[in-house]
C-alpha cells in the first residue's frame, strides 16, 4: 500500500513546471523533497492535492492512493481518500475557526482515512462534541498551541509559526493515510521546529506515509527521513538516503543546476500530448 506518482508532468499555461516525476511513498515512511527556489516543489504538493490551477499531461500518468486512482478527483475527494496537505502559506478565513473546521472534516469519513484495523475500531465519526474537543485540546497543548487559538478565525492574525503549528495540528487530528508538508519548517523557531518534528514522527508511528518539502536540513535532523529526493527544474535529479540531505546542506544545488538552466521538455514542445484539467 502506497502513494504512487508515475510520469507526473504539469504545466502552468505554457510553462512546464514538473517533468516526469516518479515517487512511491509507502505507509509509515518519510520522504524528503529538497530543491532550490522555483524548482516546482510546491507545485508538486498542489498537484497532488488537486489544485485546479495546473494542467497535467495524462499520457502514462499514474496517481494512486493505495490502489485508488485519484486522477481527475477533486481536492475534497482526494482528502476523503486519505490525502492531506499542510500548506506553505495557509490562507486566512475570517469567522471560520479551526475547531469547527476540524470537527467537520473529522466527521466526513471513516473508511477512507483509517489506515488499519485498529484505527477502524477506535475511529468514531459520531464522537460527541465534548469528546472531540477533549482530544483537540490535548493535541493542541502538546503542540504548544494556546486553547483560545482554536476558536479564533483561521490563520487570521496568527504569526507564521502559529500558522504552521495549526497545520500540524490538523494533520495530527485527521491522521491521514498520506501527508504532504509543504515547507512546514519555514518561520519556525527551534522550539517550534522540535514540536512540529515530534508531531510528524507521531504520524509516522501511526503509519502515515509522509512527504516533507523543505529547503533545509534542520527539520530533517529531527525527523530523519527514510528517503531524500532532489528536485531541480521540475525533475527529480537525485534520490538517496539521509546522507544526501547533508550533502545538499554542505554544497547546495550547484552540482545539479549547472547545465540545467533550460527546462528539458522537448517532447512537450514537439509533440503536444492530450492534457486534462483536474
Amino acid at each position: 500500500m502506497s502513494l504512487i506518482i508515475k510520469n507526473l508532468s504539469a504545466n502552468l499555461g505554457t510553462r512546464v513546471i514538473l517533468n516526469s516525476i516518479n515517487l512511491e511513498i509507502k505507509k509509515g515512511k518519510i520522504h524528503a523533497l529538497m530543491g532550490p527556489n522555483g524548482s516546482g516543489k510546491s507545485t508538486l504538493a498542489g498537484v497532488l492535492m488537486g489544485n485546479p490551477s495546473y494542467e497535467l499531461r495524462i499520457k502514462n500518468l499514474e496517481l494512486r492512493i493505495d490502489k485508488k486512482n485519484i486522477i481527475g478527483l477533486k481536492p475534497d475527494e482526494r482528502a476523503r481518500a486519505g490525502l492531506f496537505l499542510a500548506f506553505q502559506n495557509p490562507i486566512s478565513i475570517p469567522g471560520v475557526n479551526v475547531a469547527n473546521l476540524l470537527k467537520t472534516a473529522y466527521q466526513l469519513n471513516k473508511e477512507q482515512r483509517t489506515k488499519n484495523k485498529e484505527q477502524k475500531k477506535t475511529y468514531n465519526p459520531a464522537l460527541s462534541v465534548w469528546k472531540f474537543n477533549e482530544i483537540l485540546v490535548k493535541k493542541a497543548k502538546a503542540l504548544g498551541i494556546p486553547q483560545e487559538f482554536l476558536r479564533r478565525s483561521l490563520n487570521e492574525e496568527f504569526s507564521g509559526g502559529e500558522k504552521k503549528k495549526l497545520e500540524m495540528l490538523q494533520a495530527w487530528i485527521l491522521s491521514p493515510k498520506y501527508a504532504v508538508f509543504d515547507e512546514i519548517d519555514t518561520g519556525l523557531d527551534v522550539d517550534a521546529l522540535k514540536i512540529v518534528a515530534r508531531g510528524i514522527t507521531k504520524l509516522k508511528k501511526e503509519k502515515t506515509g509522509i512527504l516533507i518539502i523543505t529547503h533545509y536540513l534542520r527539520i530533517l535532523k529531527y525527523v530523519k527521513p527514510d528517503f531524500v529526493h532532489i528536485l531541480v527544474n521540475g525533475e527529480i535529479v537525485k534520490s538517496g538516503g539521509y546522507k544526501l540531505a547533508e550533502i545538499v546542506e554542505k554544497n547546495g544545488y550547484k552540482k545539479w543546476t549547472i547545465n540545467k538552466s533550460q527546462i528539458q521538455s522537448p517532447n512537450i514542445k514537439s509533440n503536444p500530448k492530450p492534457q486534462v484539467q483536474i
Binding site: 481536492p75 482526494r78 482528502a79 478565513i93 469567522g95 471560520v96 467537520t104 472534516a105
Partner: peptide, 23 residues
Amino acid sequence: FYLMSRGLKKADAEAMIVNGFIE
C-alpha cells in the same frame, strides 16, 4: 481549495466561508 483539501465538498466549503463572513 484550502477547505476542500480538508475534505469539505465545494458547497459545504462555500457555506463555511459565507457563515464565517457573517459570523
